[in-house]
Design a binder for these strands. Sequence first.
DNA 1: TATTGTTATACTCTATAACTATA
DNA 2: TATAGTTATAGAGTATAACAATA
Lengths: 157, 157
Amino acid sequence: MNRPVRNHTASDEIAFGEIGTSLGFLLRLAQVRAFDGFYASLGHLGLKPGEFTVLWVIGLNPDLPQGAIARKLRIKPAHMTKLVQRAVDAGLVERSVPDDDRRSVLLRLTDKGTRFVADNKPAFLNLVASENTRLDAQEFETLVRLLQKFNGLEDVK
Amino acid sequence: MNRPVRNHTASDEIAFGEIGTSLGFLLRLAQVRAFDGFYASLGHLGLKPGEFTVLWVIGLNPDLPQGAIARKLRIKPAHMTKLVQRAVDAGLVERSVPDDDRRSVLLRLTDKGTRFVADNKPAFLNLVASENTRLDAQEFETLVRLLQKFNGLEDVK
DNA sequence: TATTGTTATACTCTATAACTATA
DNA sequence: TATAGTTATAGAGTATAACAATA
């Protein structure tokens, strides 16, 4: 605490203090930056952040209850319903109700949805790579690994 | 690409594929987690995520134009106006218009605001420390450093 | 003309509660 | 009673555009 707190000298030089080590603050800044990259790279498709992820995961896990996917993606049920509804309206996803539990709804990609994901996968993966602007390859990899661990997803790959 | 794509085996075992390395996806998950921590730790104060940060930075940088703070915090002007208005309504912040540029608005904490930040600083810093659940101290420090660099804030401290 | 901040509007994501239907 | 999903409503954050005052 004996580090002097310097007031501003120039108007673009602002003191953050200990808040610069707040993960919540850093995550918000990073997400704003990542969203900018998302819209710059995939905005022309009319995609919203999160939509492509849901389609992707449905494609990798066909005929799973939507609740299971929502829990894993940390999407609340009410929001998941809306996401799925939009995807169904767009003809990308279809629902089915299994006989063994008629409360649940299974999701799978339609042919159109499968094509959509396949067609845009390169752009998405390129986006993932280009999200890195200031970090070298090794730093970027470390950041991804630490975030995976922070999120309890070490075993994701 | 010759890694086999395994479909689900148990309903809580879901394939993510390459999306597990998407920074945008990981950042969203991490932010959800960090917000949970925020509300668990500071929710009783009626604070919203971001509000304490703004008060903190105003306290460290008194009598700076609100636009300069908003740019640095990546808060859009329209949103900043609302944040400041709520803080003023709560008696935590006061505005002033400098003679040398009567378009701008300078912000500083009121006595009440100064006390509010000082009183809740320990809880906030404790929150920062407790944000780390799955990472050891060194990993956490690395994560913070890499996020600072990603955000162009290496010189923040 | 450009800049600072405000107002108005809308959209995304999140949160909660009440509801239906199945179990 | 509990669970899966839906509907409705609200709030936080963000985005854009139009505007007023000032530079």
